[in-house]
Design a protein around this nucleic acid. Structure first.
Lengths: 259, 259
DNA sequence: TCTTGTGAAGCTCTTCACAGCA
DNA sequence: TGCTGTGAAGAGCTTCACAAGA
């Protein structure tokens, strides 16, 4: 998973486990696809396959919402779409602001997946005066000075931070002070927020690093020695102050640094 | 969590739990920050705060890597940076291709966080002939026709998919056939891949939906009734074929549809 | 004295397997 | 008969609390 919870004691909100909540959007997407193809009902097995999970998990997940299926038949697609949408709070309109209109911010502004789920981009905000007024995704970029005004006038409770890491905490503080209580953070930094504010983070580089970890494994344990040798040339390993007995699994730091 | 594992039986790779692997990049980022400020050593408490986790978890995580700390003192920053980098496979160079150079693909191509972690964007690939040759992030976009050639010539094992949902599976199949074994998927679709191929997904809209779920809770249980009423106007709820006894927690579908 | 490293306990999530129901 | 809904078992992860050791 590309993201991680922050500042929420993994406790169940009204009995629904966090892990289940995180999968509801997946089910919803699969169901929307079925709905568009006018499929009336679907079994847990079929829906699970479409969502990429196993059917026991799906049934367990749905059991937290209520008994929305019919034994021997399956689930009514339209009915389930409605129930999950309602559970996720998508039956209402969520105005969202995006702060930091660089490459990523602009991409987010143009991303179609938001509008189709009840999220409305209410404003684009950037600190660069040169950006002010410039249209992005058919919408003029506004200056950070007006952040508080924009938040309150639009009743925004969800903010997206796509600024450089250095500006993120400051932007976060201003968003929170202005009344935002949920933040999606794309900046590669840990945000600290008061109790009651939710932060979710997406870090593109972290995802790649996790892939690299597994990729390294696949390369084979028997090739590990050769890899360690190559690695010594790729980065400059730091010298340990005192070379005392470490018990790492293998590959202690090379004692001699390559010039 | 912005992301999710796919196709990997949450089993430990060489004894390191998945949850720990997912946090190593976080620790690495915090350590890199300390390293740049020339901090020589750090305690589990301090590092945990910088990474946004608690110290017991951090110590447990590190214990899977080996005994890299000094009791009564803490951890040597440089040494730990090296060990975690090595564990994640970041001491080697990872050529990466990005397929689908739309807004998001271009943002990824320009993203600085990759290069600093051993990831090198080896090629940008797009299906649109009009894009071919156009420079993005100082690099000419290449056509999908050459995908297989690009993969093999550059020894690419990690691919990033930033295409529309409809094209993702096809691109995925070609990447896998050409030798890619790790995929980071930004397209809002479930990819099916053969055994041995890792897929991680980042879905921006899913993150917002999870935030909306919690946001809805904060609005207060007492306001739930008013919300349900508003919801009835916001979306057109489907009519149940047979209105038999459902036992959802509350808010069964409205029986009367608004015109 | 101070901080790491780690068994053990507790908690959450997943999977199993089958009773319950249409 | 077929598929849902769910207790129970199992696996994995987090947190506690303290022994070990610099």
């Amino acid at each position: 998973m590309a993201t991680g919870r922050t500042h929420r004691p993994a406790t169940r909100s009204r009995g629904i486990p966090e892990a289940t909540v995180a999968r509801l959007p997946l089910y919803l997407r699969a169901l929307t696809g079925l709905s568009e193809r006018s499929v009336p009902t679907v079994s847990s097995e079929e829906l699970a396959a479409a969502a990429g999970v196993n059917s026991a998990k799906l049934r367990k997940d749905f059991s937290y919402l209520g008994s929305y299926g019919t034994r021997g038949v399956g689930y009514d697609v339209e009915y389930l779409v409605y129930q999950i949408s309602r559970e996720l709070g998508l039956t209402q309109d969520w105005p969202v602001v995006i702060v930091g209109i660089g490459n990523l911010g602009a991409a987010l502004a143009n991303y179609g997946g938001f509008a189709s789920r009840g999220f409305r981009v209410a404003a684009l905000i950037d600190a660069d005066p040169a950006m002010a007024g410039k249209p992005v995704a058919g919408m003029p970029v506004q200056h950070t000075d007006d952040l508080e005004k924009i938040i309150s006038e639009n009743g925004v409770s969800i903010g997206v931070i796509a600024t450089p890491a250095g500006a993120a905490q400051q932007v976060c503080d201003r968003l929170v002070a202005a009344g935002v209580t949920s933040i999606l953070n794309f900046a590669p930094t840990v945000l600290s927020v008061p109790e009651g504010v939710d932060v979710r983070k997406v870090d593109l580089s972290i995802e790649l690093q996790i892939l690299a970890f597994h990729e390294q494994r696949k390369a084979g344990e028997e090739a590990a020695v050769a890899e360690a040798a190559a690695a010594a040339g790729a980065v400059v390993p730091p010298v340990r102050a005192a070379g005392n007995g470490r018990k790492g699994p293998d590959g202690d730091m090379p004692a001699v640094m390559p010039a």
